[in-house]
Design a binder for these strands. Structure first.
Lengths: 119, 119
DNA sequence: ACAACGTACAACTGATTGGTTGTATGTTGG
DNA sequence: CCAACATACAACCAATCAGTTGTACGTTGT
């Protein structure tokens, strides 16, 4: 509803709108991984992967924890669920449309019943 | 899994990563709207809104139907659900992580039980 | 101590995005 | 017929994006 919520939704969907980032999410939801461990899996520079991780972190989809010289990334399943709930909100809008159509049908059959009585 | 699936996921998340487009989705999930009716609601040019509708259409989130000189847009709730299912797939990865942790704990308590027996 | 490792960050590039205006095409109502 | 309407589409612009390379800095193991 609020502006900040829309900003957050923008960030969440944008973060997930990239296959490398979705793949990173799969890995960090499965378990903690250092940025360099992640970077080793992709055919791009370390810095590029680091940027992807930063996008996911800013969106709140993962958190980082220092362990010595490594930065361990871990996926936040609650953030993933919050995106899912944005979609169920959308689906609820659709349910409202169906309910309204049902009401119209109900109203129409009532009118028909009245017409039947009159006839 | 496949390349085409990733392309589709990219398009779906990207389409939803814009507040104007999410708002358009709310309207067209609630009922059919012509492009100009939609455009009237936003503080931007008709062409801009038309582009947003095109992005949503290419992603498969809405369909258009001609009615005389108007183009009526309607939201596709199944496409919205398909995005939600991508997220539950992600959540399943996380559940696997938890299951593995549980296994480790179970293994550990078994070892402790053995140690208790030995002691 | 120091070399190798893991990370952070800045600067740059080409591609894409979200917006604009302008023009062309089809549709409708009087 | 024709004016108003609804749409489509191209060209353009500023901003953002995804990638690169280079540099700097803290950490670790020998």
């Amino acid at each position: 509803m609020t502006e900040a919520d829309e900003d957050r939704a923008d960030a969440l969907f944008h973060a997930l709108a990239d296959r490398t980032r979705r793949d990173i999410m799969r890995r960090v939801l499965a378990g903690e991984h250092s940025v360099s461990t992640l970077a080793a899996r992709y055919d791009m520079s370390f810095a590029a992967v680091q940027k992807h991780v930063a996008v996911l972190e800013k969106a709140g989809l993962l958190t980082k924890r220092r362990s010595g010289r490594e930065q361990l990334a871990s996926g936040d399943v609650q953030a993933v669920r919050s995106v899912a709930s944005l979609l169920t909100d959308l689906e609820q809008v659709w349910r409202g449309r169906i309910a309204r159509i049902d009401d119209l049908i109900a109203l129409d059959t009532t009118q028909q019943a009245n017409t039947d009585q009159e006839g």
